[in-house]
Amino acid sequence: MESILRDLQDVPGVIGSFVLSSSGTLIEKAMPTVIGSEVYPDLGRRLVTALGTMDASIAVFDDMLVKFDEHWLYCRRLQNGLLNVVSSVAVNYPALWMATNIASTKIDPLIPAALAAQVAVPVPIAAAPVPAAPKRFWRGQAVD
């Protein structure tokens, strides 16, 4: 999946991209390393909540283009998640749209397996130590 995301960078102006599950969990990313992994849980939750709010209060939308001063964030809804592309404002939007069309069809079927692989294998929990029997005392002296 990462190679599909890297292919999106063939569109001039694309800085990086990442895929979220429908619940906002990060599935895969091809983003600049300056954006640390700790960013994605909140980022994913916010993007998914934003689209969910639109669904509930306004209408259902398939994609959203968020324009900041110098950057754009393009989010495309997939059947199993959300494809997100960060670009500069100089990006060729029709080219980006077409590239994400193609990437979406490849990425969407891969999401369930990638999400399942993320489910952590349960780690055996070490048995808690048996609490020591309370010491008994007789006139200030420990006795067995």
Binding site: V34, I35, V39, D42, L43, R46, L47, T49, A50, T53, M54, A59, V60, F61, D62, D63, M64, L65, V66, K67, F68, D69, E70, H71, L73, V86
Partner: peptide
């Protein structure tokens, strides 16, 4: 939410949002 999402990515002030749907 989108401004916060942008801030976490290091983007600047939010200016416009375009939503596209079938209906």
């Amino acid at each position: 939410l989108l401004q916060l999402a942008g801030t976490s990515l290091g983007a600047e002030s939010l200016r416009e949002v375009h939503f596209q749907g079938k209906e």
